[in-house]
Amino acid sequence: MNYAVVTRTTECELIEKKSRFIARIVPVASREEVNEAVAAARDDYPDARHHCWAYLLGQPRDARSAGMSDDGEPAGTAGKPILNVLQHGHLGDVLIVVIRYFGGIKLGAGGLVRAYSAAAQQALEAAPYQEAQPVSHWRARGDFACEQLLRHWLSTCGGEVAEVTYGEGVSLALKIPAEDESELRALCAGNRIDLEELL
């Protein structure tokens, strides 16, 4: 199933009872990128009281990985509302960090949930996006001649070699557009290349 991805980091701002909520939406492809983006938000807004966030990798309604943090706000009032917005949205491979500057007026649990949800929704709607191309991951093993054959084929379909291991033969981790799976299977079957799908 196709889903959309953010094409560039975007920020929006929401003021709620003098508290300032800055929602930053960031394209991410791994947990490492999530950690880097959260650290960058902390560096960019070091004097903010809270840096709450949620992310999901993969499709919005069927993420392969997701996570969240309330970062000192009462449990369930920040990270969970942000994640809920992402899960009901149209974007995958995405992180939203909501940076809060406390304005002196307590919002209460319900007010915090509404404010974090609204800030996240605003960022989701403001972010530029494009359709993501579904990809699949494979391991191909064969003699040394198969490497050149596979590299040539990958260059024609927009796939890539993620890793190469040399031993008695060669083992290649491949990342290809999902629509080209049957062509890869046929190529490998016709050239005695062992192929296995990586999940």
Rank of each mutant, 00 (worst) to 15 (best):
N2Y: 04
Y3V: 00
T7Q: 04
T9S: 06
T10H: 13
K18I: 04
S19I: 10
A23N: 03
R24I: 15
V26K: 03
P27I: 08
A29L: 09
S30T: 06
E33Y: 02
N35C: 06
A37V: 01
A39W: 08
A39H: 12
A40C: 13
A41K: 15
Y45F: 14
Y45S: 09
P46N: 14
P46G: 13
D47W: 06
D47K: 11
L57A: 13
L57F: 14
P60H: 11
R64C: 14
S65T: 05
A66K: 13
M68Q: 15
M68P: 05
D71S: 13
G72C: 07
G72W: 02
G72N: 10
P74Y: 00
G76W: 02
T77E: 10
N84V: 00
V85E: 08
V85R: 01
L86P: 05
Q87A: 10
G92D: 11
D93I: 05
D93E: 08
Y101S: 14
G104F: 02
K106G: 03
K106W: 01
G108K: 14
G108P: 15
G110C: 03
Y116E: 12
Y116G: 07
A119P: 08
A120W: 10
Q121I: 04
A123S: 06
P128W: 09
P128Y: 12
Q133A: 09
P134E: 03
V135W: 01
S136T: 04
W138Q: 03
R139F: 05
R139E: 06
R141L: 14
A145T: 02
C146K: 00
Q148E: 13
L149S: 12
L150I: 15
R151L: 02
R151T: 07
R151H: 06
W153E: 05
L154C: 08
T156R: 09
G158T: 12
G158M: 12
V161A: 03
A162K: 05
E163L: 07
E163C: 08
Y166L: 09
L172G: 00
L174I: 02
L174P: 06
L174T: 00
K175M: 04
K175L: 02
P177V: 11
A178N: 03
E179T: 07
S182G: 05
L184W: 10
L184C: 13
L187C: 11
L187F: 12
N191R: 04
D194E: 15
D194Q: 13
E197V: 02
